[in-house]
Simulated scan of single mutants.
Amino acid sequence: MKKLEGKIAILTGAAGGIGKGMATAFVKEGATVVIIDLNEEAGKQTIKELQEYAPESIFIQANLAEHDKLAGIVKQVADKFGKLDILVNNAHASRMNSIAETTQADFDLSFNTGFYPTFYFMQAALPYLKETQGKIINFASGAGINGDVNQISYAAAKEAIRAATRVAANEFGPFGINVNIIAPIAKSPGLIEWAEKNPEYYQGMLAKIPMRRLGELESDIGRVAVFLASEDSDYITGQTIMVDGGSIKLR
């Protein structure tokens, strides 16, 4: 049997990039996925590809900054499929600015698309995940762990997500719900675009990765997500899993 056979999964920000890589890995392991993204065109194209493996998978176009609508999305999914097994909070938008130049708008963008959706989706999914003893996968970043320059709004939101994940692990653990974090370095379209514009900085970053490469979206990041979404990870919770080629070694 496939690792996620019969599972229903919500993945945010999954029309492309890391989210699409995870969704593809999920459907190949038997899951039915609901991908949520602001980009309608990309979402429709991606869901067509995913439906080749999981015909019942669907795309929901949504602006995750509209927090009052997020609980309704979770209910819509649970009502349609009769349950919810997996929640993956991947979506996040931000702007790079130094501390001196960062504005309230920068913080609002980062927290409204990253931290708050993660919180509200976890809150809304809790009753359904209690029924299935489900899994939650949230996303952090080396930018927050290392304190990367020009990343204050993004780093702050990502570290807030890590804190919320640890609290959720403690509160949800008695219900059999696992809550973990992936902190990746991956060959996403955004990173590739940045690398092309900043080749010297990119080469310096690559040299600091012991594996000397970027993570593949499906085979590297997606497969770890499958592990965390499956029963193989039943005794792991509250952890930050660095899927970054060895760049950061947490202690």
Rank of each mutant, 00 (worst) to 15 (best):
K44E: 15
V34N: 01
G19W: 01
D68E: 15
L38N: 14
G19L: 03
T24H: 08
S57W: 06
T24E: 14
I47Q: 01
A71F: 13
N63L: 11
I18M: 11
N39V: 03
Y53R: 00
V34H: 02
T24V: 08
A25G: 11
T32E: 10
A31C: 11
G17Q: 10
N63C: 09
Y53T: 04
A54S: 15
Q61E: 14
S57I: 08
Y53I: 06
G19N: 06
V34K: 00
I35H: 01
F59C: 02
D68W: 12
L50Y: 03
L70Q: 05
E41D: 14
T46G: 01
Q61R: 12
A25T: 11
V74L: 08
Q51T: 10
A15N: 10
Q51I: 11
E29I: 05
I73H: 04
E41G: 01
A23F: 07
T46P: 06
Y53P: 05
A71P: 14
I60W: 03
L38H: 12
I36R: 03
I35E: 03
L70Y: 07
V33T: 11
N63D: 15
N39D: 15
N39R: 08
D37N: 10
G21K: 05
L70F: 09
I36M: 07
A65R: 14
I36L: 12
Q45W: 00
G17W: 09
I60R: 05
A42D: 13
G16C: 07
A42K: 15
L38Y: 15
E52N: 04
T32K: 08
L38S: 12
F26L: 06
E41L: 08
E29D: 09
Q51S: 09
Q45M: 04
A71Q: 14
E29C: 02
S57R: 02
A62K: 14
K69M: 08
T32P: 07
G43A: 09
